[in-house]
Structure formats: structure tokens, C-alpha cells
């Protein structure tokens, strides 16, 4: 078994969880067991669509101790860049694809927390599925707050109700008596609580700000985003690479990382949403428009770095010079 690289798997089972969410079970092609992983882990999936390879990250939802298969849950998003639509419309049982080894950018604060509180919006439930399994195995205290439009749209509802009685709080916004998940509940969490958010950028921002206002220390606040936060218009710009002596133009429709990969530059990357820091590159000259949620505010000013998956040049007219 190689320690790095991609793993070939086949789709062994597809389950329609809700109207818009499907669960895909992936089994290894050339090995008995898949690599072990911890709660909150995700994999990158590489699906061939003709000449194009669609690369997307999805949280694992299968039990962390079950190494015979992985499961991922995908919500079909008609406004997406095509990944979820392809998975829903084209992927069939028996199809083969490649996946990465599991990576965890959203780990549990196992030792530090006395109580873990999860806030999920929609498909944001996925990383918490494995986290709750890990906490249950360790006998740790936790609770889940989970918002969906309706009970029918709420993935894993029956499973969660049966497996974690008394620990799950559901909020359905489009029912006869709508119930909204708000940050107010965070004011009541006991000392030693750590909070975890997963959902759209606006939800995560609202809950992070509320947690800070309630006096939660920064190390007790954890979050994962699906996409890069929208931080204003994207201007085209040019980067000059000192190691490869190349110039790469970045259009307004693409990220710096996409432009670099298209130009054949081996740029490091992982989460692609400005959350993990894997794509950090040193900046030799030029000003950066930081759009990540990885660095602390002070670090953005003091470090001469850029996360290529989301951040851009501050001014279109001035080149960014990168050590790459």
C-alpha cells in the first residue's frame, strides 16, 4: 500500500437520502482496506468527464472504523460549477474513479474540550457524522444543532434521531411552525465548550461573530466552509514566478490556483476554499487582497504570503511576484 498518491475505487452503492442529496459508497479496487481516518476528514474525488477531470472535496460520512468502504453525501446544486450535478446525473453503481487519501482540516479538539457543540446548515451535517461517531466511541459529551428546510430535506434525520437521542436539535424553516437556528443558543453552553460550524459562508460568519461576542476564546471556535467567501469583485491580474521565470495571467473568472495549474505550474493545494493553508506561496513583491479565512487578521499584515486558491492581487495594474 502506497502512503501517498491516489486510490482507485468503484461506486458500490448509491442511496437517495433526500430529494437533493445522494449518498455514494466507494469500495477499493485493488486492496482490501482503505486508509484509516478521523472524524471531520474529507477526501478529494477525481471523476473523468471526457478529457476533463472534475476534482471535488467531500467529507466522509461512513463510520471511521469501517475501512472496507468510504461513503460521501453530495447535495445536487444546480448553481454549482458542475461537480455535484455530474455526480447526481452521471455516476452509476460500478463506475470507477480515483480518490485522495483522507485529509482532516476540521479535527475535533479532543483534549481541550469538555463539551462539543455542532452547528450544521443543510449538507453541512456531513463532517459532523464522523465526529459524533468518534466522540461516542470515546464517551465524550456533545450536542448537535441542525437546520434544514423541512424534515424531508434533512439528510440522516432518522439515523440521527435513533442513534443520538436527546443530543440532536432540529430546526426546520419551511414547516407550519418554522423554527430558525440562531446563534443565541451559544450563550447557554457550559464552560469548556467548543463550537463547530459547517454550512454556507454567511451562516458560518454569523455564528463565528456571535461566538466571539459571547466571549468564546478563538481556540474554542472551529468551522469549515463549502466555498470561498464572496469578498467583492474579482479583477484580472498577472503574477510573475521567480523560480520558473514564468508570467501567468489570471482572469476574473478564475482563481490564481486555477490559472497556475492550467499553466502547468505544480502549485500546492488542498481545500480550495481558503481554509487549510496548503496553497500558501511567498510573495516577493506586490500587495495581496487576502480573501482567506485561514490567517488571523494580524498575520495578513505581517506575513508576505498569499493563498492561491482564493486571494488575489490588490491592484490589476501591478504584478504580484511569487516565489514559485
Amino acid at each position: 500500500m502506497k502512503a501517498f498518491g491516489k486510490i482507485e475505487v468503484y461506486v458500490g452503492k448509491i442511496v437517495q437520502e433526500t430529494k437533493y442529496i445522494k449518498r455514494f459508497h466507494l469500495y477499493p479496487v485493488d486492496r482490501e482496506l482503505l486508509p484509516a481516518f478521523t472524524g471531520g476528514s474529507h477526501i478529494a474525488t477525481y471523476v473523468k468527464n471526457g478529457a476533463e477531470t472534475i476534482e471535488r472535496n467531500y467529507s466522509l460520512v461512513s463510520h471511521p472504523t469501517d475501512r472496507t468502504q468510504y461513503a460521501i453525501a453530495i447535495r445536487k446544486d444546480d448553481h454549482s460549477r458542475g461537480g455535484s450535478v455530474y455526480w447526481h446525473d452521471e455516476i452509476k453503481v460500478g463506475d470507477r474513479l480515483e480518490i485522495s487519501w483522507p485529509k482532516n482540516h476540521f479535527p475535533l479538539a479532543f483534549k481541550a474540550a469538555k463539551h462539543h457543540v455542532f452547528y450544521a446548515a443543510g449538507i453541512g451535517i456531513t463532517p459532523f457524522m464522523t465526529m459524533m461517531e468518534d466522540l461516542t466511541a470515546e464517551g465524550k459529551s456533545f450536542e448537535l444543532h441542525y437546520a434544514a428546510r423541512t424534515k424531508e430535506d434533512c439528510a440522516f434525520y432518522d439515523y440521527l434521531m435513533a442513534k443520538y437521542p436527546g443530543k440532536c436539535h432540529f430546526y426546520f424553516s419551511r414547516t407550519e411552525i418554522p423554527k430558525k437556528m440562531t446563534p443565541v443558543t451559544m450563550a447557554e453552553h457550559r464552560i469548556g465548550s467548543h463550537v463547530y460550524f459547517c454550512g454556507p459562508a454567511s451562516m458560518v460568519k454569523e455564528f463565528r461573530e456571535a461566538a466571539e461576542s459571547y466571549g468564546y476564546p478563538s481556540y474554542a471556535i472551529h468551522f469549515e466552509l463549502f466555498a470561498v467567501a464572496d469578498k467583492g469583485p474579482k479583477n484580472p491580474f498577472v503574477v510573475k514566478l521567480t523560480n520558473s521565470n514564468k508570467k501567468v495571467a489570471v482572469s476574473e473568472e478564475e482563481t490564481l490556483l486555477e490559472a497556475l495549474l492550467k499553466a502547468g505550474v505544480q502549485a500546492p493545494h488542498s481545500c480550495k476554499v481558503g481554509g487549510c493553508g496548503s496553497c500558501e506561496v511567498q510573495v516577493m513583491e506586490g500587495e495581496v487582497d487576502h480573501r482567506d479565512h485561514f490567517y488571523k487578521d494580524g498575520e495578513r499584515g505581517s506575513k508576505k504570503v498569499i493563498l492561491t486558491c482564493c486571494s488575489r492581487a490588490k491592484e490589476s495594474e501591478k504584478e504580484l511576484v511569487l516565489e514559485l
Binding site: 451559544m186 450563550a187 457550559r190 464552560i191 459571547y214 466571549g215 468564546y216 474554542a220
Partner: peptide
Amino acid sequence: ILDQQKMGTQ
């Protein structure tokens, strides 16, 4: 007394 405290307590 300590067990009853909420987050945001110094």
C-alpha cells in the same frame, strides 16, 4: 459552582 458557569466567564 465552577461546573455551572457558561462560556464567556472569566
